[in-house]
Structure formats: structure tokens, C-alpha cells
Simulated scan of single mutants.
Amino acid sequence: MSARYEVLEAVADFARSTDARDWVTLRGLLADDARGYGTDGAEQVIAQMRTHLDGCGPTQHLLGNHRVSFASEEKARVWSYGRVMHIGAGDKTGQTLELFGEYDDTWVRQAKGWVLHRRAFEISISLGDWGVLRKAQ
């Protein structure tokens, strides 16, 4: 299996785990010193993600147009177009937030496999109600 394939499988697992709210699997896909979603450290990254998704309804992180560049055998930079749909829950039922943009990730290979070290998401289009992103009620 090629390193490109392996790292893109990790990218896909991260999206699937996010949509499933599978925080245990997500933790395994993060480097201890991960940086993303406006914070540093794997536990803090997950906590930040939960402040947006625990009170949100279903989501889908659809990724494509991947570009992969290897700095070494243990470090890859991955750019992926993202189309992310969030469905409101509770008093936000019927509301949606859809984001279009590009993820800029750095992944590192560790003994357990590829883990996310750094993530940024450059939003180019947002449609809908940002209020669907919230903590559990």
C-alpha cells in the first residue's frame, strides 16, 4: 500500500469519525500536539470540535480533489476540497449550515499510523445559519 493511499485513508477516517461523533477514533487520529480548530493539543482539539458538533444534528464532511506532498517518508501535507453540511437539531431543526472550502492538513506517520498534526480550513462560501453549531443542550 502506498504512503499516499495510507494518508488519504486517514483523511477519510477523520471525516467519517467526525460525522459519527466517534471521539475515541478521532483521538487516535490526532497527534498529541495537534493544532486545529483554533486550539492546540489533541484533547483541546476534540473539546473544540465538540463545542460545535455535540448540539448539532447530522453532518457530512465530503472531501475531494486531494493533493498530497511528502516532505519526508514521515510527513505529508494534504490539501482537500471540503463541502460540509450541518443539519440543525432541537430549536434549530430545519436550519442548515453548508460550508465550502479547502482543508490544509499536515499529517505525520507514527507507530500507530498517520495522525493529524495541523489542520486549517479556508472557507470560501458559507450558506445558512451558524447557530446550528453549538454545544449539547
Rank of each mutant, 00 (worst) to 15 (best):
R83L: 10
Y37I: 10
R77E: 12
T93Y: 11
H52D: 14
A15Y: 05
T96W: 03
L97Q: 06
V78Y: 00
S2R: 02
D129Y: 03
A47G: 07
A20L: 11
Q60N: 14
Q137K: 08
F70S: 00
G94A: 07
V24M: 08
S124W: 08
M1C: 08
Q110F: 05
D40S: 10
K112Y: 08
W107T: 08
L53R: 03
F121P: 03
G82Y: 01
T51E: 02
G38R: 05
H52C: 13
F14G: 06
P58S: 14
E43C: 06
D32F: 04
A34H: 00
E9G: 02
G113Y: 02
V132I: 06
D32E: 15
A3R: 05
R109L: 13
Q60K: 12
Q48D: 06
V108W: 00
R67E: 11
G38V: 05
G28Q: 03
R4E: 14
A120Q: 11
H52I: 13
H52K: 12
D104Y: 01
F100H: 14
H86K: 10
L116T: 08
E102Y: 09
A136H: 10
T18S: 12
Q48V: 12
A15D: 09
L29S: 04
Q95G: 04
K92R: 15
F100Y: 11
E122Y: 14
R27G: 14
E6M: 04
T51K: 03
R118W: 01
L63M: 14
Q110H: 13
W114E: 01
Y103G: 02
L53W: 02
V11A: 04
R77A: 11
H52F: 15
S72A: 10
F100D: 06
R16F: 09
D13C: 09
I125S: 02
